[in-house]
Write a protein that binds this DNA or RNA. Structure first.
Length: 324
DNA sequence: CATGAGGAATTCT
DNA sequence: AGAATTCCTCATG
């Protein structure tokens, strides 16, 4: 297994997005199979608990106990790796003993701080992306039962969890947020805890946003705001071609399902047809969506001059007639 | 067997 | 009304 170019997403820190090894496809979720042995992985994960130290320490104070993000990630990771917290995570040691700063450690800490803020930024961006594609508000408290259902299905498919969407029907976001981890487990013994952890990340992110809204324009906040306005606030339903574009815009999230072959010419390839169809189905509340139907919709675009097959026709490869 | 093209009826907003 | 969905037949590799 190589080390392909990959950007950060909170999935990466939980190892979900790597490899599609189907770790979660089986009930007996055999750990370790296909788990990448990249050294970075361990560092990121084990140190994730420090995410909220220093400049982001305020995040911790949301709940005066353990950091939600940390706890979540650690828990998700445990489930994934099949281990218990603390057993092999050097990062946790920092909670137990005061940091001893020699030069080496200090440098490491610096790097870590940078990684931490990077991670927080990426997590927020990923959530924003998901919101746009799902057309749901970022704050789980505002979700209606339909939003909840979308989020559950989406999370299931993004992280290859066992399918438990039905277990969370008829719940509002408020209900969901009130539920304890135990409640989640009761609804789904398989992955209730993981869903709970994911939700907690969203809750924390919403809380963060609420806290530091105005000055959040640091990187590309305005750009994000604009695209949010034109894609979701116009009220009209999203078009399939727009949806595909948005997926293509986020290669670090969806690159394993759909990616550019030639961005300049607008040529793209659907790598995982079933997955793309599923995501589209979730977006449109069409549980029966499949690639058969999705491709029919794409073919409707031929006549309209929105999408075509490229010069040299290849399976699952299409081309936007008007690339950006 | 999955993909691809396109007709036709239906549904959704 | 327009876009997408659903279902279908036939073709291709």
């Amino acid at each position: 297994m190589g080390s392909p170019e990959r950007h950060l997403s909170y999935g990466d820190y939980t190892d979900f997005s790597q490899g599609h090894t189907g770790l979660w496809d089986m009930e007996d979720a055999k750990p370790s199979r296909g788990l990448p042995s990249m050294p970075l992985q361990g560092v990121y994960l084990s140190r994730f608990d420090m995410l909220l130290s220093d400049d982001t320490a305020w995040l911790l104070r949301k709940a005066d106990m353990a950091t939600p993000l940390t706890r979540d990630v650690e828990q998700i990771r445990c489930k994934e790796v099949g281990q218990c917290p603390g057993i092999d995570s050097p990062g946790l040691g920092l909670e137990l003993c005061p940091p001893v700063m020699d030069g080496q450690v200090e440098i490491e800490e610096r790097c870590l701080e940078q990684v931490q803020s990077l991670v927080v930024g990426e997590v927020l961006k990923d959530i924003e992306t998901a919101c746009k594609l799902l057309n749901i508000p970022p704050d789980p408290m505002e979700w209606n039962p339909g939003n909840v259902q979308k989020w559950v299905l989406w999370t299931e498919h993004m992280y290859r969890l066992p399918q438990v969407g039905r277990d969370f029907q008829e719940l509002s976001g408020r209900d969901l947020c009130m539920m304890s981890e135990e409640d989640f487990r009761q609804r789904s013994s398989q992955c209730g805890d993981v869903l709970y952890a994911h939700l907690d990340i969203w809750k924390t992110a919403a809380w963060m946003k609420e806290r530091c809204c105005p000055e959040d324009s640091s990187v590309n906040g305005t750009e994000e705001l604009c695209s949010e306005v034109d894609s979701c606030c116009t009220g009209q339903p999203i078009h399939l071609w727009q949806f595909l574009r948005e997926l293509l815009l986020k290669p670090h999230n969806y690159g394993r399902s759909i990616r550019w072959l030639n961005k300049e010419k607008g040529i793209f390839k659907i790598e995982d047809s079933a997955h793309v169809a599923k995501l589209w189905g979730i977006r449109k509340n069409r549980p029966a969506m499949n690639y058969d139907k999705l491709s029919r919709s794409i073919r409707q675009y031929y006549k309209k001059g929105i999408i075509r097959k490229p010069e040299v026709s290849q399976r699952l490869v299409y081309q936007f007639v008007h690339p950006v």
